[in-house]
Design a protein around this nucleic acid. Structure first.
Lengths: 108, 108
DNA sequence: TCAATATGCCTCGCAAAGTGATGGCCGTCA
DNA sequence: TGACGGCCATCACTTTGCGAGGCATATTGA
């Protein structure tokens, strides 16, 4: 998968995922890998900065949770502002796809 | 339109356009603007470097043509290697869209 | 027992691509 | 003659992802 295409779609992916419930970093990476059948492996160097940025803008919030074995995980949960942002992003995404599709031609 | 989403889609757009026949830079910009109803304005700073790069890899070729008024235009035409590359890019594009769609949810 | 693997967080330097600004050249038209 | 539009192009800056690296602890297995 061309890395350049991915650029800009990460926030959309993350917010969409977090819509299903809070998740922690490692879990997000594994989930994406599994759902795409390994086609797309979200890299840590892309994930964590993106997550932190979304938190800085208060689109998501984080909290630490201790597991039974004593280890900690940092969960991220979508916030109201994030939901609104996601909605706008989705719209933009659809416009973008339609636009490119118009030049490239239908899927066929 | 979010600038970041566009990244990586430019070569795809250009090759697709040039499939319809040779075009020159300014014409490409105007064509994109018109077809998208102004939604997307390809910037010169993005177009020319992209064009030059596609030429360097021999996916497209260029030639100068003199108009009746004496002024020159630089036309770009797709090459066989470009056609093959376009085909691969299209496939990648479709995979990419399907992937994101799977997370974001159907267009609705 | 001890090494390898998996879980889990993070940061840093680099490369690639787009943006906005700027510059230059030349025709046309008021 | 001066403004505008056509037409090419480059440059510094920003953003984003990548690859590599670092740190720490639990589990597993030879």
């Amino acid at each position: 998968m061309d890395r350049e295409l991915l650029k800009g779609s990460t926030p959309l992916l993350l917010l969409s995922l977090l819509c299903e419930g809070p998740m922690y970093g490692y879990q997000i990476i594994e989930t994406v890998r599994q759902r795409t059948g390994g086609t797309y492996t979200l890299k840590e160097g892309a994930l964590y900065p993106a997550l932190h940025k979304l938190e800085a803008t208060e689109f998501i919030a984080s909290y630490w949770e201790t597991q039974e074995n004593g280890r900690e995980r940092r969960y991220y949960a979508i916030q109201p502002a994030g939901l609104a942002f996601l909605k706008a992003k989705k719209k933009e995404w659809n416009q973008f796809v339609d636009m490119v599709q118009a030049f490239v031609g239908p899927k066929a």
